[in-house]
Computed example of a mutant assay.
Amino acid sequence: MHETIEVARALREGTHPLLQLQAGELRAAITPEVGGSLASFSREWKDGGRTRELHWLRPASDEGLANRNPLAMASFPLVPYCNRIRGGRAHFGDRDVHAPPNHPAEDSPHPLHGIGWQRAWVVEVEAAAEVILRLEVPAGPAWPWAFSARQAYVLSPDRLEIAIAVRNEDTVPMPVGIGHHPYFPHEPGTRLATQTRAIWEADDEVMPTRLDGSSAVVRQLREGADLSQLHTDNNFTGWSREARIDWPASDHGPERSLVMTAEAPLDFFVLYRQRGYDYFCAEPVSQCTDWLNLQDRYATVDLGGAVLAPGQGIAARFWLKPQW
């Protein structure tokens, strides 16, 4: 609990507002100025006269908040596309994408996660258990279509609901993808179970190379995988839109689990699990990596993504439901 208090104090004393939500024993904190990100999602309860705290997502670090680094948050939005675009170059309709590299810690030519995660969002609604944020982005080289986006974080006593929407504010059709990027704690014995149809195998630059429906990873996840045995940074197609995470009893808390469910068009799933890290990412998304550059070779069912007419929007929700 001490770490969360210090983070909150640092934000209050600085320039970054931290919006606190509370419902029953569940707590959430949102930082609009750091990419409209979720800074923490936790449970706080009394145990033998003392207050205890357990984090369902990796909480934001003081350093990450001070540096405005969304990659150090608990989760951040993915708009108007998810994952990477090869070389930052793509073409759609009569417009070209020329997105520059945008990873603050890696020398990669492939920009990732869209635009929204690196911009400050505006607060539209702030209540005890709900925050609604808004973002407006003009057309530019990185994304040559004007768009707006909204997020809603709604906390209930048994779950956190996150809704995300994008609207085409331009005069021509715009391709789009949406999603979120949760970071979950990993410790020995953590398991993840979810169903997918196939995995996108990737090269050393994490760019898709081929679809594999018979992959051992697909089978392991379907049966419930021990995450300590996996080393992956891959997209999956045909996601069931549900994933269950189980943590063993440890110094971090009692035996517990969390179920993440989503609605269409979040039909794709990203799993980032790297050996040596005390976290992993399980991401609900609406399109696979580099989908704009793969449309001439693969079907929409394998790539995802949508096209919005001027004034048209796309929206989806997902839920994080802890169990203890």
Rank of each mutant, 00 (worst) to 15 (best):
D170T: 03
T171M: 11
V172H: 09
V172M: 05
V172Q: 07
M174D: 08
P175Q: 09
V176F: 07
V176C: 06
V176S: 05
V176T: 13
V176Y: 15
G177E: 04
I178A: 02
G179F: 05
H180Q: 02
H180R: 00
H181S: 08
P182M: 09
P182N: 09
P185F: 10
P185G: 10
P185E: 10
E187P: 00
E187V: 11
P188G: 11
P188M: 12
P188C: 10
R191L: 02
R191A: 12
L192H: 03
T194W: 01
Q195G: 08
T196C: 15
R197V: 03
R197Y: 01
A198R: 08
I199L: 10
W200Y: 04
W200H: 08
A202C: 14
A202V: 09
D203I: 05
D203T: 00
D203F: 00
E205M: 09
V206F: 09
M207W: 03
T209P: 00
R210G: 04
D212F: 01
D212I: 02
G213K: 04
S214D: 12
S214Y: 06
S214P: 00
A216D: 14
V217P: 00
V218N: 15
Q220E: 12
Q220T: 02
L221M: 04
E223I: 02
E223G: 01
G224F: 11
G224N: 11
A225I: 07
A225C: 04
D226K: 03
S228R: 14
L230P: 02
L230E: 04
H231G: 08
H231D: 08
H231S: 15
T232S: 06
T232M: 01
D233K: 06
N234V: 15
N234R: 15
N234Q: 15
N235L: 02
F236I: 10
F236S: 03
T237W: 01
S240W: 00
R241C: 10
R241S: 09
R244Q: 14
I245D: 00
D246N: 07
D246T: 11
W247I: 11
S250F: 03
G253Y: 01
P254Q: 07
E255K: 15
S257Y: 02
V259I: 11
M260A: 15
M260C: 14
T261R: 15
T261C: 14
A262K: 13
A262I: 06
E263S: 13
L266I: 08
D267I: 02
D267W: 07
F268N: 09
F268Q: 14
V270I: 12
V270Y: 14
V270E: 15
L271R: 03
L271V: 08
L271C: 07
L271K: 04
L271H: 13
L271F: 10
Y272S: 02
Q274A: 13
R275A: 12
G276S: 06
D278A: 12
D278L: 06
